[in-house]
Simulated scan of single mutants.
Amino acid sequence: MVTQAQLRDALTVDGDLLDHALVEEGGVLLVAAAGRLTALDAWLRVDRTANPAEAPETVVVVDHIPRDGAGLLGDDWREVEVERHRYAAPTSPLEEAVVAIWADGLGLPRVGAEDDFLDLGGDSFAAVAIAERMEQECGIAVFAADLYQLGTVRQLTAQVDAGTAR
């Protein structure tokens, strides 16, 4: 599991350490960042800092971390949830190849099969480069615009599997 030092590095925003808590039984990281970070942004920050195998699968952004009188995480944290991002692992060899290309092309340690291209920071330059690599390495002919329109690796590979891509 991710260390507290890695979380401190990842969750310091504008010099302030965001309040956070790990729910270890579910691999969930709670971050009090409503209005400061999206759940995807928080997940990416942690994923860049930690080994992806150690990073939590789910990041939940909350208004505040509900703690009891002893400062321990309360059971009612789901009641203050604002937004959630869960890593979706690739489910086919094609998805595995494409998420690796996306991660490399976007400069990220890993990309989930349901992460949106634009939300990950994708732009037209990255779309062209990624589309070219997909054709070279996987034999998939797609337009750069397909990354915008279909949005996720899962949707893109579903179009390829269905034979409706370019």
Rank of each mutant, 00 (worst) to 15 (best):
V98A: 14
G151D: 00
E81F: 08
A113P: 02
D9C: 09
Q136C: 01
V61M: 03
E57I: 08
E95G: 09
G15R: 13
R67K: 15
F125Y: 06
A144N: 00
A55M: 09
L108D: 08
E57A: 13
D123P: 00
A141S: 11
Q149W: 05
L11Y: 04
A89C: 05
V46G: 00
D116R: 07
A97V: 07
W77Q: 04
P66Q: 09
F143N: 10
G35Q: 06
D63M: 04
E95V: 00
L40Y: 08
G122Y: 00
T157V: 14
G139H: 07
D63L: 07
V13P: 00
T3C: 04
Q149G: 12
L73A: 11
R48G: 09
S92T: 14
H64G: 02
L29S: 08
F125G: 08
Q4C: 01
F143A: 14
A100H: 08
R166I: 04
T58V: 06
P52L: 15
D41W: 02
R48Q: 13
A100T: 10
D104L: 06
A89P: 13
D76I: 03
T91N: 10
A34G: 13
D123N: 12
L30G: 03
A145I: 07
E95N: 07
A129V: 06
P66C: 03
L22Y: 07
A103N: 07
R8L: 11
A127L: 00
V2T: 15
G112A: 12
D68H: 10
E57P: 02
A33W: 01
G107P: 02
D14Y: 14
T152W: 01
L37N: 03
Y87C: 05
V80D: 02
Q4D: 14
S124Q: 01
F117K: 00
P66N: 09
T157N: 04
D14R: 15
A141G: 05
L106M: 06
W43V: 05
L147M: 09
L7N: 03
A70C: 13
R67G: 12
D47F: 01
Q155N: 15
I140K: 09
A88P: 03
A53T: 11
P52Q: 15
A103H: 05
V13W: 06
L22G: 05
V111T: 14
I65Y: 15
R78C: 05
W102T: 05
V82Y: 01
V59L: 13
D47N: 13
G112P: 12
T58R: 11
A5S: 15
E95S: 08
E96Y: 06
E79W: 03
R84E: 12
R166D: 10
